[in-house]
Design a protein around this nucleic acid. Structure first.
Lengths: 193, 193
DNA sequence: GTGCTTTATTGATCCAAATCAATGAAAAAG
DNA sequence: CTTTTTCATTGATTTGGATCAATAAAGCAC
């Protein structure tokens, strides 16, 4: 059932015991979402981390009624409003399916129980948090130092899936620009070659 | 000696044993840096996390020979090129003292030994990584959704110390703009009141 | 399929920041 | 204290993206 997730864990923390993994499995629930459906709502405390088995998901941040795309997540990546999940404060971020999506969801209480029952699991928590941090670091450097045009070029190279499977107006939001600006950037890039 | 750091730990992980704390202390070294001095160099693997006892430090990212300020850190905050520290790859970030600074430095090997000898210490690692992540999340949202002018206004409110103790051209870099642009933003803000 | 809604493109205008350049102010070095 | 270097400000010009508006294309529902 959770083969892809198990594979992910094997790589992340190979020394994790079979007992811990078995207990962890029991904390998971499988969920299916239709394209456009809300997975986790902005405004209330977020209690889940989602491992995406199939589909694409976007995480956004509602500011002045406008959805700012924080990031896209694909098959075999995990996501969630990690901030709300950790702080137990109402989420600033919402999560929505961009395609029909299947996720394995881990509930907050389940994770806390894992930490309590299997102290070794703290290590997984640490590695996951560190991974999240590293991902953010890159995005941050990109937002700080690169122009929108460079950001788009790099995105296409680094995550070609995004350009292929995600609508442009969402990519524009992810890049921090308007759809019009992205359209013009694309035009410029085409005439470059 | 490490009172301020101990206080920080008490808040972060109150249940940490005295044994673990004692062992941890032994991993620390005290360092002094003059204003302008390099604490950790970009380009080589970073082996330290610094807890700042006194002074201000900046973390930057060298791109095309230009220092992009990632962040400033003050008394009783910790810093380091966490990315390089975690991945064991050459650092993309350098660290430099903005004022005369005293730090308590934790070496990578010391931390790994802590994890090995005191599995409970993984929890500290997790909480630290989570804290780093949360900090970055905010900065990210700010870079994505706010205009430089708003970013500056928010910075002045949230971290008045920065505006007071850090030169403007560094703040400009932190905001992702040129010193000229910041100078004009400040002018605009003054005439606002 | 037809119509309806959403998304993408293009044009025109406006604005904030980048860039280039020069001067003034402040800090560091001697 | 004086000189030198670094930092901050101001001006002129350029540029890329925002905004407003209109049209074209693609998706979706019926």
């Amino acid at each position: 059932m959770f083969d892809s997730l198990k594979l992910y864990f094997r790589k992340l923390a190979p020394e994790l015991s079979q007992d811990a993994w078995n207990a962890f499995q029991k904390c998971l629930t499988v969920k299916r979402y239709k394209k456009g459906e809300t997975i986790s709502e902005e405004g209330r405390v977020n209690n889940i981390v989602c491992f995406i088995e199939e589909g694409i998901v976007m995480v956004y941040n509602l500011i002045d009624g406008k959805k700012n795309i924080y990031n896209f997540f694909f098959e075999h990546e995990y996501t969630g409003d990690y901030e709300s999940f950790l702080t137990r404060k109402p989420a600033n971020y919402g999560i929505e399916a961009i395609e029909d999506t299947i996720t394995f969801n881990l509930h907050y209480d389940g994770l806390q129980k894992m930490y309590a029952d299997f102290p070794e699991f703290e290590r997984v928590g640490r590695l996951v948090a560190e991974g999240q941090f590293l991902r953010l670091t890159e995005r941050n450097a990109s937002l700080l130092a690169e122009k929108p045009e460079d950001r788009y070029e790099n995105l296409v190279v680094a995550k070609p899936q995004v350009a292929q499977r995600v609508p442009q107006y969402l990519i524009a939001s992810y890049l921090g620009i308007t759809p019009e600006a992205l359209s013009r950037i694309r035009k410029r890039l085409v005439s470059k070659f």
